[in-house]
């Protein structure tokens, strides 16, 4: 594995290696000196075309905890906002000798395109409505920490599946790891070919809730109602929002996840978001460990497919 562009690129063993490595590296975050020398001398560029402070900070913290040099290259105020093409930016990063580029972009496939143009490692930190593989990894990591495993877990992913990079990456990764995924959404917010996806589909949240070990709520943009994906925020919330009543009908051990940012009162009530069943803040913490593992394995050169010699980069 040279890049991390899609959660679907990961074999089961590779995914488990990332999660195991993240576990080890999480110890670092608990130490008073939160720093490893592992990536000293390596340069990681955070190339963010979309505002996503939480993801950028997470990658930045992960890289710095391993002593990498971090350059934040945000689209705002840079040559990018003056119309420089992604390709020219890629060539610039190449000339700067970037060992790894973490890219966040509104265009699906932007990370893949970038990987065609630079020699260094490309990590997809969210490309439009396509994927967000490190989010799926941190979600799987969080499930493991809370419930002890991923395999065999019944995971409901609820919300705007059609436009969600988090859903795409999670379906791919969780399936690889042996979880049973059910997508829950109004039909308008499901991809048209969802019946070919390796998961179940339901239009009825109440039917799925009691059977789920994990309920992952996705952010739903209220603007979707202007394109008639649903009639109103109120109706959406009534049919697909997670409130205290619904939480009470979940299994006792079941957890509530959300990739953030949450729209409280829309897909999730404040009460649920702040409850002990919610893993929202753990997900943020775990994000750093998982991203450390990804950077370590891709830039440090230790990841390899079974039977293959990993090549140091």
């Amino acid at each position: 594995m040279q890049h991390l562009l899609s959660a679907g690129d990961l074999t089961r063993d590779e995914a488990l290696l990332i999660l195991d490595t993240a576990r080890e590296l999480s110890q670092v975050s608990e130490r008073s000196v939160k720093k490893l020398p592992t990536l000293r001398g390596r340069t990681v560029v955070n190339l963010f075309y979309e505002d996503s402070t939480r993801t950028r900070i997470s990658f930045e913290a992960a890289a710095k905890r391993m002593s990498a040099d971090v350059i934040n290259f945000s689209a705002r105020g840079s040559s990018v906002s003056k119309g420089e093409s992604l390709k020219d930016t890629a060539l610039t990063l190449q000339a700067m000798g970037a060992d790894g580029v973490v890219i966040r972009h509104s265009a699906p496939g932007a990370a893949r395109r970038l990987a065609d143009w630079v020699d260094g490692v490309v990590i997809n930190a969210g490309d439009g409505t396509h994927e967000h593989p490190t989010q799926a990894l941190l979600d799987a990591y969080t499930m493991r920490e809370r419930l002890g495993r991923v395999e065999g877990l019944r995971v409901a992913i609820v919300g705007d599946i059609r436009h969600s990079r988090v859903a795409r990456s999670n379906v791919l990764l969780l399936t690889t790891l042996g979880a049973e995924v059910t997508l829950v959404a109004p039909p308008t917010l499901l991809p048209v070919s969802v019946d070919t996806w390796p998961c179940a589909v339901s239009y009825d949240l109440d039917e799925v809730l009691p059977k789920s070990d994990v309920v992952m709520m996705l952010r739903v943009q209220a603007e979707r109602m202007h394109s008639s994906f649903f009639p109103s925020a109120r109706e959406y919330s009534r049919r697909y929002g997670l409130d205290a009543d619904r939480l009470a009908r979940m299994a006792d051990h079941a957890i509530v996840m959300h990739p953030g940012p949450m729209v409280r009162g829309m897909e999730i009530s404040a009460e649920v978001a702040d409850s002990a069943r919610s893993t929202v803040t753990e997900q943020v913490t775990n994000g750093v460990s998982v991203r450390m593992a990804v950077l370590y394995l891709l830039l440090g050169g230790a990841i390899h497919r079974p039977g293959n010699q990993g090549e140091p980069r």
């Binding site: 699906p108 496939g109 490309d127 439009g128 409505t129 396509h130 994927e131 990079r165 795409r168 991809p191 048209v192 070919s193 969802v194 070919t196 996806w197």
Partner: peptide, 18 residues
């Protein structure tokens, strides 16, 4: 719309042209 709407567009997250 960006590409044919179907299995591939859904996987790639590109808006479909049905």
């Amino acid at each position: 719309a960006q590409m044919n709407e179907g299995v591939v567009s859904d996987r790639l997250g590109l808006a479909g042209w049905p």
